[in-house]
């Protein structure tokens, strides 16, 4: 139950092209959270909320403008930067894009193993083991190329790749949103099982409130780069406090909500969240609203 990854006041600005003034877009605004062993934190939001930017920063694909990321070893000491990637890995959204069409499945899993200190003989064994662990025990699968696999199989390969270096933190960026609906839950179940087995800390990024609620322990709701609500998964979804979370919950399709006057009640859904409430954050743990210092 120890904290592995602490994120403090993460901020990311993008410079927009156009104009001499070079306007700045704040994609992520002072986001803080902690990932803990064996637990899942969900970042929920719509496009433009900054959730994927956070994933990319955690995966070190981008540098934050401000803020700190502290990775802790099991003994509580800080892990130096050059070993960061041994510990933090990522599962990408689109399994059709995240595997190199030129290389075999084996290559995708063997490379991280080799990079993280396995020799050749070990690697070959490990590749088969990893594939088995993600329920891809088909013989000779490692010699096939991505285009011969279905979307679900590809995503399993991507998960195996993330686990290969022995990661303790997995950032899953919409891992099932591009898959066919009937296999989404299976892939999520697989992630959950691996998490239990490995005691992983997981960051689950999604726009889907329902899976966020069921898959994760804790939810942060992001709106325009800011955390507007945080708390235990069930509480955030079942008793949302922030108007934006309420809006999201009301807009999400729900098989049990048949007959909601055809479609959600108009007066409850304003299309815009006013600036004042957008800037406030509700924390279910403290039960308090907080606002950023002006």
């Amino acid at each position: 139950m120890s904290a592995i990854l602490e994120v403090h006041d993460l901020t990311k600005d993008y410079r927009l092209r156009g104009g001499l003034r070079r306007p700045v877009l704040r994609a992520v605004d002072q986001v803080s959270f902690t990932l803990t062993q064996g637990r899942t934190l969900a970042l929920v939001g719509e496009s433009g909320s900054g959730k994927s930017t956070i994933a990319r920063i955690l995966a070190r694909l981008e540098k934050p403008t401000a803020g700190r990321i502290v990775l802790r070893a099991p003994d509580g000491t800080q892990v130096p930067g050059r070993f960061y990637r041994d510990h933090v890995q990522m599962v990408f959204q689109d399994p059709f894009a995240s595997l190199n069409p030129f290389h075999t499945i084996g290559h995708h899993i063997a490379r991280p193993l080799r990079l993280h200190g396995h020799d050749r003989a070990q690697t070959a064994r490990q590749v088969d083991q990893l594939l088995e662990r993600v329920s891809l025990a088909e013989p000779a699968l490692a010699r096939r190329r991505p285009h011969e696999l279905s979307g679900g199989q590809r995503q399993r390969v991507a998960i195996a790749r993330a686990l290969a270096p022995g990661a303790r933190v997995v950032v899953a960026d919409e891992p099932v949103s591009m898959l066919d609906v009937s296999i989404r839950l299976d892939v999520l179940q697989l992630l959950a099982r691996l998490q239990r087995e490995e005691n992983l800390a997981m960051l689950y990024i999604t726009h889907d409130l329902a899976t966020a609620r069921h898959f994760s322990d804790e939810i942060l709701v992001l709106y325009r780069g800011r955390v507007v609500e945080r708390g235990p998964a069930d509480e955030v979804i079942l008793t949302p406090r922030h108007p934006y979370t309420k809006l999201l919950a009301a807009a999400s399709p729900d098989p049990l909500a048949r007959g909601r006057a055809g479609i959600g009640p108009d007066e409850e859904i304003g299309d815009e969240i006013d600036a004042a409430s957008a800037a406030a954050t509700y924390d279910h743990y403290t039960g308090r609203w907080t606002r950023p210092q002006a």
Binding site: G38, R39, T40, V181, S182, R184, L185, L188, Q189, L191, A192, Q195, R196, M202, L209, A210, T211, R213, H214, F215, S216, D217, A233, I237, L238, A249, S252, P253, D254, P255, L256, A257
Partner: peptide, 16 residues
């Protein structure tokens, strides 16, 4: 395949 937003969890098991 679609877990309910507000209903029971069904077959789904949360990791921790």
């Amino acid at each position: 395949s679609f877990p309910s937003l507000v209903g029971e969890r069904g077959a789904f098991i949360r990791a921790g």
